[in-house]
Amino acid sequence: MKRVLFLILALLLLSAASHAEDMVLEPVPDRSPAARALLFGIGRTNQLDTYLSPMEYTGLQASFMLQSERMTRLAKHHISFQSTLHGAFSSTDNPAGTANCLGGRLAYDAAWHYHWSPLPKLDVKGGASVGADLGFLYNNRNSNNPAQGRLSADISLSAGAGYSFRLWRLPLRADYQADMPLVGLMFSPEFGESYYEISQQGVGHDIICAYPGNALSLRQLLTLDFCLRRITLRIGYLCDIRQSNARSLKYHDISHSFMFGFVRHFQLMKRTH
């Protein structure tokens, strides 16, 4: 049986190879080049969750960001689609250094931006995104309330600008983007609600509406792209501010990270004879 499968596979490959000699690769019409960036970050974070402690915890945060962006055919190729997966892991201590918190976050955003160029080499964009955020904060010392879960989904305003320029003949591109959630849903237990009650009544009981009045958050990313031989490298600064003040519980996670990574540009191709 294995031999038969191997034979079929070999014939298919030979057939493809014989056809390939007559084919050429061409860019797919209406599919603009796409850019995909993978960034890693290291920075400091400041966390407060009054469900766990009234103290602010500070420490290191490691993160990654996988971002891809391409222009779409919408609005005469003026609208881009951007996909961002952002993950972070933190280890923080209380001011006295007697307790530690471990935190983790995974967020996904899909954004659509309208682009225009008010100046040569300046690209301004504005739009909206939808996203979801999942995370936790675990305090290694608390007994009956050792951890807090975070779950939210929101619609955000998103805007940014990019500028291409040269410095000492080196082509560079600076980008800035800010995202601010406008409205959504988030999980928040009540002030003194125990896990036992949450489990008995269900998590749905603790899903509330989030808006800037009770969950004012902002993510800002400033990056600089430059080429080193044939590789496009990216360095940047990420300021991620997540906050909520709901049901008499305050939460914030304010991180400042140095980001570094690389960018790859893709063009979707098709075979033609």
Binding site: M55, T98, R141, N142, N144
Partner: peptide, 16 residues
Amino acid sequence: FSSELPIGWSIRFSAS
């Protein structure tokens, strides 16, 4: 529930 003081001491108290 648990909480803490600025000096770093852990506090336990009745919450529910």
